[in-house]
Design a binder for these strands. Structure first.
Length: 137
DNA sequence: GCCAACGTTGGC
DNA sequence: GCCAACGTTGGC
C-alpha cells in the first residue's frame, strides 16, 4: 500500500462532503505532476485529506476505491480521476503550522511545493501523522 | 529549445 | 488583498 496526500478547498469539497456522499470521483486535476501521482494510486492506497485555504489542516483519511480512468469533466487533454471513499476522520486536525514546525515533516511536498494538489507521502510520514493526531497538543 | 510574460494556487 | 512559487504559453 502506498500513501498519499490530496488537497481540496473545503468550500468546494470538504471531508464532510466525502463522508456525506460515501464515494467521490476525484476530478478536476489539471497538473501533470498531480495527474501522474493519481495514476500511480492503487485500490486500497490511503490518502490524507488536506483542507487548503480557510482551514489549512489535514482532517481525515480516505481510501482509493477505483484506480485511474479518464476524467469525464475534461473537455480536452489527457486527464485522469480516481474514486475515493472516506476511511476515518482524524482525532484532531493537524494544522499546516504544526506540520511546518515539525522537524520530521519537513520533506513533505506540502511544504516544499505548496501548489501540488496530489502528492506521495512516505509510510513513515503517514504513520507519524496518524500517531501525532492520536495525541493531544 | 530558450525564456519572458502571464495565469493560477495557496499561504500569509 | 498581496505576493511568492510554480506551471503554461507563445514568440523567437
Amino acid at each position: 500500500m502506498n500513501c498519499w496526500l490530496i488537497k481540496s478547498e473545503p468550500e468546494t469539497f470538504s471531508y464532510e462532503d466525502l463522508e456525506r456522499d460515501g464515494i467521490t470521483m476525484w476530478d478536476g486535476v489539471r497538473n501533470y505532476a498531480a495527474r501522474n501521482n493519481l495514476r500511480a494510486m492503487q485500490v486500497g492506497d490511503q490518502a490524507l485529506f488536506y483542507h487548503s485555504l480557510s482551514d489549512k489542516a489535514i482532517v481525515g483519511i480516505c481510501t482509493v476505491a477505483k484506480a485511474f480512468y479518464p476524467d469525464p469533466t475534461a473537455e480536452k487533454g489527457d486527464w485522469s480521476v480516481v474514486d475515493m471513499v472516506p476511511l476515518k476522520r482524524l482525532n484532531r486536525a493537524l494544522s499546516l503550522a504544526e506540520i511546518k514546525s515539525d522537524p520530521k515533516l519537513q520533506q513533505l511536498p506540502l511544504i516544499r511545493n505548496s501548489r501540488l494538489s496530489v502528492m506521495p507521502v512516505s509510510r513513515e510520514e503517514f504513520d507519524y501523522i496518524l500517531w501525532l493526531t492520536e495525541t493531544s497538543l
